[in-house]
């Protein structure tokens, strides 16, 4: 829709991204009893004091706001794990480390609504910011290697928010090459077979290099 016809704009608003992330599951520890909930989105509970259970993030936030539970931050949100992720992000300039698809939104929601349940929250927050920065920088430098021969780009482990933010630039870059390249392709079709099928060799298939916008 809008995002495609106007490559300047993002497809999803921040609020929409958050809405999508709120369906991700998270562990809570209730401090009350409540019978199972049979909701349109699924069945959750039963809820028993001190017995951990999985619920969607929106429900966790709702219960937390009313003082009915504590939230258990996901395992990837520990300082130890985030430090590892940050190091690996820095060490491998062409790969993104696996993180939840909505890691930015999830962490933001938890910072906003469950801050007292996150140990070392300032450290966690700054690690996540650093990870974001490193990853964005990688996308940017990956884009510099896009050429007219690029038919496909694989961005393994890129997250939802990152996709939404880089989409306009990535699409615009790929499109401009495509438009630029088209007449040449028509005029000299003979060249086609001699072109390296980079998507096969160095593109999406090359799992070792994931920001793959490969060149001849």
């Amino acid at each position: 829709m809008a995002g495609q016809s106007d490559p300047q704009s993002s497809v999803f608003t921040a609020a929409e991204m958050e809405f999508l992330a709120e369906d991700e599951m998270i562990e809570i520890v209730p401090n009350m009893r409540m019978e199972p909930l049979n909701l349109i989105s699924g069945d959750y509970g039963p809820f028993r004091p001190q017995i951990a259970t999985q619920v969607p993030l929106w429900l966790a936030v709702a219960l937390k706001k009313r003082g009915k539970c504590t939230v258990r931050p996901p395992e990837w949100m520990s300082i130890e794990r985030l430090t590892q992720v940050l190091e690996s992000e820095r060490d491998s300039p062409k790969e993104f480390q696996p993180l939840p698809f909505h890691y930015i939104e999830i962490s933001r929601l938890l910072f906003d609504h469950a801050r007292d349940d996150i140990p070392d929250i300032y450290m966690v927050r700054s690690l996540i910011e650093d990870i974001r920065d490193v990853r964005f920088h990688k996308v940017e430098s990956g884009l510099e290697t896009i050429s007219a021969r690029t038919h496909a780009v694989k961005l393994k482990n890129l997250s939802a928010m990152e996709v939404n933010i880089v989409r306009p630039f990535v699409v615009r870059t790929l499109q401009s090459f495509y438009k630029h390249d088209s007449p040449e392709m028509i005029q000299q079709p003979v060249q086609m077979p001699t072109r390296q099928p980079q998507a096969t060799d160095r593109g999406p298939r090359a799992s070792s290099s994931n920001v793959k916008a490969s060149v001849e």
């Binding site: 780009v153 694989k154 482990n157 996709v163 999406p204």
Partner: peptide, 21 residues
């Protein structure tokens, strides 16, 4: 296939993210 001539192909692997036409 990624283009009309089907010279270039991509293997879509489950869970991976791609930017394609």
């Amino acid at each position: 296939p990624l283009d009309d001539s089907a010279d270039e192909i991509v293997d879509l692997v489950a869970g991976d993210l791609y930017v394609l036409r």
